[in-house]
Simulated assay, not measured.
Amino acid sequence: MKIVALAGSIVGSKTRTATQKIVEMLQEKYPEHEVILLDLADYQLVFSDGRNYFDYEGDTKYVTETLMAADAIVIGTPTFQASIPATLKNIFDLLPVNAFRDKVVS
């Protein structure tokens, strides 16, 4: 099973710290599964422009393809202005409509 932990903010350190802890716990409890941390602060992502996710290049392609290949996704996010950060919203916009179908997302 491939599990991706997504730290959905590019500012601050609390979201990354919490998401990193989840990765460590999953790796310890389920060593047979592949667990990947995607911290959006580590990548240069373009804004969604309506293309299919596989048409992007560079970091954007890597992040979207990694999420699409995951069996389970853990999303870490702070709350800004009673909503999610724009960087995380952009990820959702980059992915196809059925991106989370048949995946466990938390």
Score class of each variant (00 low, 15 high):
Ala70Leu: 00
Ile36Gly: 01
Met25Tyr: 12
Thr64Val: 08
Tyr62Met: 11
Gly12Thr: 15
Gly76Pro: 00
Tyr62Cys: 04
Ile73His: 00
Arg51Glu: 02
Ile75Arg: 02
Ser13Pro: 02
Asp55Cys: 00
Glu32Tyr: 15
Asp39Asn: 11
Ser13Leu: 10
Lys29Glu: 11
Gly12Tyr: 13
Val23Phe: 04
Gly58Ile: 04
Met25Gly: 13
Glu57Leu: 14
Gly58Tyr: 02
Ser13Met: 11
Val11Cys: 02
Glu32Met: 11
Val35Glu: 05
Ala72His: 07
Asn52Lys: 15
Leu37Tyr: 02
Leu26Trp: 06
Gln27Ser: 06
Gln20Val: 06
Gln20Tyr: 05
Ser9Glu: 09
Tyr53Pro: 00
Pro31Lys: 07
Tyr53Trp: 11
Asp42Gln: 13
Gly50Ile: 10
Arg51Lys: 15
Tyr53Leu: 09
Gln81Lys: 15
Leu26Glu: 07
Tyr43Lys: 13
Thr66Phe: 00
Gly58Phe: 02
Glu65Trp: 14
Val35Trp: 00
Thr15Lys: 07
Ser13Gln: 14
Lys21His: 09
Ala7Trp: 01
Leu6Gly: 08
Pro31Gly: 04
Gly50Ser: 12
Tyr43Glu: 05
Thr19Trp: 05
Glu24Leu: 05
Glu57Phe: 00
Val4Arg: 09
Gly8Asp: 05
His33Gln: 13
Ala69Phe: 05
Phe54Gly: 04
Lys14Val: 10
Ser48Trp: 06
Lys29Trp: 06
